[in-house]
Design a protein around this nucleic acid. Structure first.
Lengths: 221, 221
DNA sequence: CTGGATCCATGATGATACTG
DNA sequence: CAGTATCATCATGGATCCAG
């Protein structure tokens, strides 16, 4: 395997970091590992379009750089990749890119653009975190076919986390990914088909209000 | 010219942003434009290693994306490139990369690694901003052969800015880039050759203290 | 089935030289 | 000064195949 070792040779922290995470796909692999350990095929699915060759190469580079580790337990087929502490520290980089995108590069889903729950919810958490003044604690559980996610506010920041089975949520949303995407762009008061929003009425109202505020900020999606 | 149009096709703000600024060299061009307008050859010099062909292509892409503009005045050979407001909003992305690099990817200058004043001072500003508790206002003017820079704290954040001719600095440092780099790693109290540090004694002492604190945090450079 | 590896095509980047 | 032109190389994509 030809390992990528291109450098910039600048005495500069930004350049040095980009030598490690600047290659195509790398920050997207990290984005998807930020919500918890994933298997090779989990990553393939989320990173729609990456080839197995490139994903393998990127994962080996992340291991070499000390940003991720591979859990290969004997007797188990699955290989679980997860971020090291240094890898998790790249969260602010991913968030900074996302926040810029929300302000300057947002656009409607393109025709044929696959929709992944994790990416959609990350955008939602990002938008609420940066545009709403409301940072009171909250726990929203999303139950999509196949996997669950938690969007929560710890009193300071809104973020997307993997599911904690112990979690008790204020609001539980059950829907398909497509139905939830449609809901995001449903005007307030309109009927909300194919989506179930359960929880304390006050919490549900707050949920709808924050989603509505987000949609209005983001503009003409 | 073959224009780069590779996309990720994810419905994701991070991926969308990386489609615009994720290509090799792009964020480094932005890094160097963040301190003010630059000419083609200014950028060539700072981006040591980039080829003119690639730089031309990147600048055209930045123009197409609305991140930079080219000032071509008739009768003048010089072309000045500068960031748009959207381009300047990428500052936090560059800073996030830099801050991660300070914690996880720092290393001594490699043999033969060119040293540029702007990159060196950006690292200094980054390190002080993130590691020192001192965020009182300050203005440090650096006079290097060829160009001047201002490292300042506005009461909240330390940053590197282009030179404002009106600026009245607390501390004025006159040296070569190499002498200043040596000074950074000089133990406190040791002689400081080939560097002139002028200003109010209190301000100079604060300057030396913050530089010393930075060097100790950054570790075994 | 998961987690890759292999082969080939193409396009992006690099090196060097040259020009309006 | 601000790029082009040409050629070489390397990274990535697409498709297919394979071993546990």
């Amino acid at each position: 395997m030809t390992r990528n070792v291109r450098t910039y040779n600048h005495f500069c922290l930004t350049a040095r970091t980009l030598e490690l995470v600047g290659d195509r796909w790398v920050l997207l692999v990290i984005r998807d590992l930020l919500t918890g350990p994933k298997r090779f095929t989990d990553l393939m699915e989320r990173l729609g379009g990456i080839t197995p060759k490139t994903l393998t190469q990127r994962l080996r580079e992340l291991e070499d750089a000390g940003l991720a580790t591979a859990d290969r337990e004997p007797g188990r087929r699955e290989v679980k990749y997860q971020l090291t502490a240094a890898g998790q520290d790249l969260g602010p980089v991913v968030d900074a890119l996302s926040w810029w995108g929300l302000r300057h590069a947002w656009r409607r889903p393109q025709p044929g653009e696959p929709l992944h729950a994790e990416h959609l919810l990350r955008s939602v958490a990002q938008a609420i975190d940066n545009t709403a003044g409301d940072h009171d604690p909250a726990r929203w559980l999303f139950r999509f076919p196949g996997d669950d996610y938690l969007v929560e506010c710890d009193g300071d920041r809104w973020s997307l986390t993997g599911t904690d089975p112990q979690a008790r949520a204020d609001v539980t949303v059950t829907a398909t990914v497509e139905a939830f995407a449609r809901f995001l762009f449903t005007p307030p008061g309109a009927p909300e088909p194919d989506i179930d929003i359960a929880g304390d009425p006050t919490a549900v109202q707050r949920f709808k209000h924050l989603i509505g505020a987000m949609a209005s900020v983001v503009g003409p999606m």
